[in-house]
Simulated scan of single mutants.
Amino acid sequence: MTAQRQERKARRGAIALAAALAGLLAALGAASPGRANTTERVVANRYTGIAISGYDPVAYFTDKQALLGRPDVEAWEAGAVWRFCNVGNRAAFAERPDIYAPQFGGYDPVDVARGVAVPGNGQLWLVSGQRLYLFSREESRDAFAADPARYLGEARQRWPKLLDSLVQ
């Protein structure tokens, strides 16, 4: 092999190594919670950061139905992007996110009571005690509706430990 060919081969290897390292660093940076636009503490799309599939959390209370929010009416809260049907709903949420955001970060309270974080579905919901709860299955919603005190007691007891285990 000539000296020129050896030199070219060495350069290609160095370029390939640099590209591999750059790719690895980019992958680690994208997976880093500090750089993420979302959190696991609130049910949100991992790619867009949009909470509860884009449903307006205030509409569950005001319109008594699951309504999709608009992309031009958004707010940032608790590491997620929330969408709203109108600016009035956004203002209400900004003033009291503790009231309007789904309890347990949007995780199913029946599953939280079992010690498991299962994301709720924006279309399977219930307002109970002036709080919003999302459920992963109809069976969970029905069980919760039949005995909310039981599930809330267990869920509130297990939530702090579950919350600590979720990515920040």
Rank of each mutant, 00 (worst) to 15 (best):
G88L: 02
D111V: 01
Y100E: 13
A80K: 04
E77K: 10
G122S: 06
V116I: 12
R137F: 08
D142C: 01
A92K: 14
G106T: 07
F144P: 12
G120P: 13
N121V: 06
L126C: 05
F135R: 06
G129Y: 06
V118T: 10
C85I: 13
G105W: 12
G105D: 13
G122M: 00
G153W: 07
G106S: 11
S128C: 10
V110Y: 07
A143N: 09
F135C: 03
A117S: 12
I99E: 08
S136P: 03
D111K: 09
A113D: 01
G79T: 11
D98Y: 05
A146D: 15
V118A: 10
R137H: 11
G105H: 13
G122W: 00
L152T: 11
V112Q: 03
E95V: 08
L132W: 10
V116P: 00
A78P: 00
G79V: 06
R114V: 01
V81H: 10
W82R: 15
R90Y: 11
R90A: 15
A101G: 13
N121E: 08
V112W: 04
D98L: 03
V81E: 03
A149E: 13
S140V: 12
Y107W: 14
Y100Q: 10
R90L: 14
L124Q: 07
A143Y: 08
R137E: 15
R114C: 02
G105C: 13
V116R: 12
Y151I: 08
